[in-house]
Structures are given as C-alpha cells and as structure tokens.
Amino acid sequence: MRFFRGLTVPAANVDQVLSTIRNRGLSQGNQWSIEYRHPGPLDALFAKPDLSTQDTRPHNQAGDPAVCACSEEMGAAYYAWQHNRTSENDTPIIVEFEADQDAVAIDGRDFLATVFQFGEPALARPALARTCGNAVLPYAERAWATDNQNRRIALCDLARHHPDVVKAHHANTVVLGGRHHTVFRSAFIVKLPTAPQSIIRAWSPIGRPVLPVPGITLSSLLIESYRPKG
C-alpha cells in the first residue's frame, strides 16, 4: 500500500534528515510518539459481550513503534505545512513510501474515534460507509447501541484494524474536516521500521498548497450536545 508522511524539522537539518530517510528508511522519532497495537482476533473480540479497551489495549502488552501517514499527498502536506509545524521544527518534509497492509491501522484520533463515541447514527452512518466502507458499520452500530464509552472505543479499535475497513479508507477520496481543524482524506498508523527499499521518494516541498474544502466535517456528524455552538 502507498502512503505519504508529512513531518517538520529545523531548516538546518533538512538535508541530513532526507539523507537518513533515503538511506535508512523511517524509524522512531520526530515530535509525536505513536504505537501500533493490533487488538487480536477481530471476530472473537467482536463477539465478546463485555468487550473493553483492556481487551484491545491490554496494559501489560507494549505496542510497536509507528508513524502517522496518509494515503495521498494532500493530507501529508497539511500535516507537514500546518499541523506539525512549530517555531523550531519549521520546514516541511514529505515521504512517499510503501507498507504491507498487515502493518497498517486507521488512525482514529482526529475523526473515526469521535464518530464512534459521539456520532448521531442517522448522520454518521452514510458518512462512515462512504469514507470507510460498509464493513465499518457493524462496529459503529454496536458502539452507538451502548452508553459505555470504553466499549465504544474498543469497538473502534476493532474497526480500524479490519482489513476491508483499512482498504476502503485508503481509497477514500472525500476530504474530511476533523478535530482541531485537521484536513485530510485518510489517516493511518504504520508500524515501524520502514526499510529504505520501501521509500519511494523524500523531499522538502517549496510551495505551500491551498487546502481543499472538506466535503464531510466531523462536527456535522455528532449528536447535538457535542456540536460546536454558534
């Protein structure tokens, strides 16, 4: 599967970082600490009546180091030019690379998890089917049917690892407006390391792109009490 990762580094370090990525691949580091943690047998866990995050994120089981990525360049450009920039890390870098699907999960933090927790089913159902495929719906329906927020998160953990959901989200073309004004079409967590032969290209873009207008916004899918006021 093809991915694009957007990151930012100090201007003085750009050449060194690009050389390291091209010669050594992607490894742990940068601003955010991310883990890839597969919950286990999805069907068996989905059938568990008392499913919780202790099943999908057991405290005694460490995750694998991972990085965030998108399935297309626009999302990576947004994170590189805007979301991840700081006064110190001020220069964007985009990395295009390949990864096996069994090393990939949807990153639900900016969109999917919130829809599972606070989505209005009538509004969220068609949006999830459009952006994550029909395979996501049994997980979402069960989440909306319970008031247990922990169980809702655990069901989202299962959904974001389901191979058909991952494939559908990877192919999504709808621009999403997520938490904290994020703009992307897809968001993933990719397990590390990524070998240098998996790197397609790595570069520091020159011109800041104009972001497209989201076709679906997170706030429009939530129950009324969780929608922004005004």
Score class of each variant (00 low, 15 high):
199 I>H: 03
127 A>I: 10
196 P>Q: 00
151 R>T: 11
211 L>V: 01
209 P>M: 08
220 S>R: 01
122 A>K: 15
151 R>F: 01
210 V>D: 14
131 T>S: 14
158 L>C: 11
203 W>H: 04
204 S>Y: 04
187 A>I: 02
216 I>M: 02
182 T>K: 07
132 C>Q: 11
130 R>H: 14
220 S>Y: 00
180 H>W: 09
154 A>Q: 14
192 L>T: 04
199 I>L: 06
211 L>A: 12
174 V>R: 02
148 N>S: 12
169 H>N: 08
164 D>H: 11
147 D>Q: 12
142 R>H: 10
193 P>F: 01
172 N>K: 06
133 G>V: 13
169 H>P: 07
181 H>R: 14
212 P>K: 09
182 T>P: 09
199 I>S: 02
161 H>W: 14
128 L>F: 08
212 P>H: 08
161 H>E: 12
180 H>Q: 11
166 V>N: 08
214 P>R: 01
206 I>P: 00
190 V>Y: 01
160 R>A: 00
214 P>I: 04
155 L>W: 07
221 L>R: 09
221 L>G: 04
123 L>I: 06
144 W>G: 09
198 S>Y: 02
156 C>N: 07
215 G>V: 06
141 E>F: 11
144 W>Q: 00
214 P>K: 03
145 A>S: 15
170 H>T: 11
180 H>K: 12
220 S>E: 11
133 G>A: 12
131 T>K: 10
144 W>L: 03
165 V>I: 14
205 P>L: 05
168 A>I: 15
218 L>T: 05
141 E>T: 12
214 P>S: 01
151 R>K: 15
138 P>N: 05
205 P>F: 06
129 A>H: 13
191 K>N: 01
187 A>W: 00
124 A>D: 09
178 G>A: 05
141 E>L: 13
193 P>N: 03
202 A>K: 02
204 S>T: 11
221 L>W: 12
194 T>R: 03
165 V>E: 08
128 L>V: 08
207 G>N: 14
210 V>P: 02
171 A>G: 13
193 P>V: 00
154 A>P: 09
132 C>T: 09
183 V>W: 03
128 L>D: 04
220 S>V: 09
135 A>T: 15
162 H>N: 12
201 R>S: 13
137 L>T: 12
191 K>W: 00
130 R>A: 15
147 D>T: 10
147 D>C: 07
177 G>N: 04
161 H>F: 15
211 L>R: 06
162 H>F: 09
165 V>S: 06
219 S>R: 05
142 R>T: 00
221 L>C: 05
150 N>K: 05
202 A>G: 03
175 V>N: 02
213 V>P: 02
204 S>Q: 05
181 H>C: 08
157 D>L: 04
149 Q>N: 07
184 F>E: 04
164 D>P: 08
135 A>F: 13
221 L>N: 06
141 E>C: 07
153 I>M: 15
147 D>A: 14
207 G>F: 03
141 E>V: 13
188 F>T: 07
138 P>L: 07
146 T>M: 09
200 I>E: 05
211 L>C: 04
174 V>Q: 02
213 V>G: 00
148 N>A: 13
215 G>C: 00
143 A>W: 06
123 L>G: 08
160 R>L: 10
124 A>C: 08
125 R>I: 15
214 P>N: 05
122 A>F: 10
139 Y>M: 06
154 A>V: 14
132 C>D: 00
